[in-house]
Nucleic acid binder design. Structure first.
Length: 611
RNA sequence: GGGGGCGUAGCUCAGUUUGGUUAGAGCACUCGACUGUCACUCGAGAGGUCGCGGGUUCGAGCCCCGUCGCUCCCGCCA
């Protein structure tokens, strides 16, 4: 719950108190309250109403000793979710009537006057839910969001979200960061995710884009001399959704000048620590660090979940000596044999291990080799190929299951990553209360297309390479590491960023390597940032955190939809107001837009059907 | 773009396997009873285009085809 230090500011001309804060020390006071009828219990001679506002519930009691007959009659008649104003006296409950699981359970309000100011139709969804009730369908919750958002759980999530926003603002502002806003109508970006486009009325055939992030603007702020910037920025990406992905989302976006990587990491750790502290969790600093290379080698993943180990190892030397076709071929083709040892995995059935193999194949691997060591014997298709040396090198212990993928790293890493995660889940190694923060550093500057060999920026084209890597391998950019970093918690990426290139010479080298050496092409795509950088740019860098995901983690929600007031469905629709919709021809004409006739469809109507 | 799950009363679900009389339950709702409940209790009642369209059949909630919506995942997305 988020309340002002002095909760009396919540008093208004219509109410003296919020509902959920009445306590024993209020006994004897005459109070006026306003709220929603959460539940009511009509006993004939007595009526009880649980009155709800965002601070909680309090029991109203109506009885012949203190309520006039007409007051009691309207209390008995008022429907749930109606809004009422009441006046009455706070009284202590008898000891045997105290409700211990209710914050206001020691008191109740004996009502002398009641006004139904907002009568409610029977709600389409229950707001007050009984123990064991299942949640209404997501579709209905979104369609009737005005009711869903009344539920105390969702209110708590959004109130926590508010508190986290305040903490972020306070932390950054106290550290000299300026909250600066950037445009929502902006220029389409040439790469990355698909843009949401907005047609221009004034300029026929031209379009704005909604920002995927304020990336370019925040670098321009650095060029302007606003040397510390932040923004709680709404970002838009027109890609397909997931439980943890919405088309519009919120980032805590940060950029600073005259800094190096260590400055950003320290500042960002401080922010994360203060956010988690607000949610009641102490996080130790500094966060451990791991290079991208080590993360990929040991976990097959650039955001490893360190709550359990099950680290991957390189078994190529073991298999190189064996006469086994699959592994020999893979090694001869430049691949490696990597794998992991699963203690206790030998107890799994053939079928269970087949399921792991299916996961590995789903991630692109050709197969998953297995060997188990149980009751002193090796078992599995490759068991008979194992020499004494190989057995010694594997060092399996009783009950172990060893799993291998023989392939190039770009295939074995994602496959073994999935296998490792599933093994941890099966062995129940994941403790929800564990929080393993991690910085992943030294991302590669480029990734090579396995077919064409073309280079693409892993982060973005303005990320700075390690100066020593350029010096050591001037002609092997694939070996360059970037000054880029990700903040990871329990296998989830919370945020990431980089130190930017501010040296024009390095920047043009980067463009050339990325295949955009043509100056006109550079200007067309990045002109306004390049102009800014040429006009005198300080060394700068930054980071952005996915705020919705952080709010989701800290509230314990399992979907972003539970920490966003009005989220979209997986089809990017807003069921509440019914967006998107077809618009009148007149509006399209003004925008110089024509809709292809065969895709014209109406908005969804209340029965869920297309018009 | 592809795959899985779901769609029956206001809400949550059963019924679909094997097509067959009038589609059921709990909660909510309406009416009645009840002076200490807090998931009040008890009695009575009302409430259904079985998502939508088409097909097969003497007959479809159930089988087939299409479609719409929600959801999870892959692709996509940093």
């Amino acid at each position: 719950m988020s309340l002002p230090a002095d909760s009396s500011v919540l008093a208004t001309s219509l109410r003296t108190d919020p509902c959920g804060l009445l306590r024993r020390h209020d006994v004897g006071r005459t109070v006026r309250l306003g709220g929603w009828v959460h539940r009511s219990r009509d006993l004939g001679g007595l009526v009880f109403i649980d009155l709800r506002d965002r601070t909680g519930l309090v029991q109203l009691a109506f009885g012949p000793g203190w309520s006039a007959p007409e007051v009691q009659a309207s209390a008995a008649a008022v429907g749930v979710e109606s809004v009422v104003l009441v006046e009455g006296e706070v009284v202590a409950r008898d000891a045997d009537r105290v409700k211990a699981d209710m914050d206001t359970g020691e008191v109740e309000v004996r009502v002398t006057a009641l006004r139904v100011v907002g009568p409610a139709v029977t709600p389409a969804l229950p707001v007050a839910r009984n123990r064991g009730d299942k949640m209404p369908a997501e579709e209905l919750r979104l369609r009737h969001r005005y009711l869903d958002l009344r539920r105390p759980e969702l209110q708590e999530n959004l109130i926590l979200r508010h508190r986290l926003l305040q903490v972020a603002r306070r932390y950054l502002s106290d550290n000299g960061y300026l909250e600066l806003e950037t445009p929502i109508l902006t220029k389409p970006t040439p790469e990355g995710a698909r843009d949401y486009l907005v047609p221009s009325r004034v300029h026929p055939g031209e379009f704005y884009a909604l920002p995927q992030s304020p990336q370019i603007y925040k670098q321009l702020f650095m060029c302007c001399g606003f040397d510390r910037y932040f923004q709680i920025a709404r970002c838009f990406r027109d890609e397909d959704l997931r439980a943890d992905r919405q088309p519009e989302f919120t980032q805590i976006d940060i950029e600073a000048s005259f800094i190096g990587q260590e400055d950003i990491l320290a500042m960002a750790e401080g922010l994360v620590v203060s956010l988690w502290k607000e949610a009641g969790v102490e996080v130790p600093r500094p966060f451990p660090r791991m290079s991208y290379a080590e993360a990929m080698e040991r976990y097959g993943c650039d955001r490893p979940d360190l709550r359990y180990d099950l680290a991957l190892q390189d078994y190529t030397p073991v298999f190189r000596a064996l006469d086994f076709g699959v592994t020999s071929t893979a090694i001869a083709n430049g691949g490696r044999v990597r794998g992991l040892v699963v203690p206790g995995g030998a107890a799994w059935s053939r079928k269970q291990v087949d399921e792991l193999e299916a996961l590995a194949k789903g991630a692109g691997a050709g197969g998953l080799l297995r060997v188990r060591f149980a009751e002193g014997a090796y078992d599995g298709p490759i068991a008979k190929f194992l020499t004494d040396d190989a057995r010694a090198a594997l060092a399996l212990r009783e009950g172990d299951l060893a799993l291998f993928v023989a392939a190039p790293d770009r295939i074995s890493s994602p496959a073994l990553d999935r296998v490792r995660q599933e093994c941890a889940r099966r062995l129940d190694l994941v403790r929800d209360t564990d929080r393993r923060f991690l910085w992943v550093l030294d991302f590669p500057m480029f990734e090579e297309d396995p077919d064409t060999g073309a280079l693409a920026a892993v982060h973005h084209p303005f990320t700075s390479p390690h100066a020593d890597d350029i010096a050591a391998h001037p002609d092997a950019p694939a070996k360059w590491r970037a000054l880029a970093y990700d903040c990871v918690l329990n296998g989830t990426e919370l945020g990431g960023g980089s130190i930017r290139t501010s040296d024009p010479a390095v920047q043009s080298r980067m463009f050339a390597l990325l295949g955009i050496g043509d100056v006109e092409e550079q200007e067309r795509r990045f002109g306004f940032l390049l102009e800014g950088l040429r006009a005198g740019a300080p060394p700068h860098g930054g980071i952005a955190f996915g705020f919705d995901r952080i709010a989701m983690l800290l509230s314990g929600a399992t979907s972003l939809r539970d920490v966003i007031a009005f989220p979209k469905t997986t089809a990017a629709r807003s069921l509440f107001e019914g967006a998107p919709v077809a618009v009148a021809d007149k509006d399209l004409d003004e925008l110089h837009i024509a809709v292809a006739a065969d895709v014209t469809r109406g908005a969804i109507s209340p029965d869920g059907q297309g018009a």
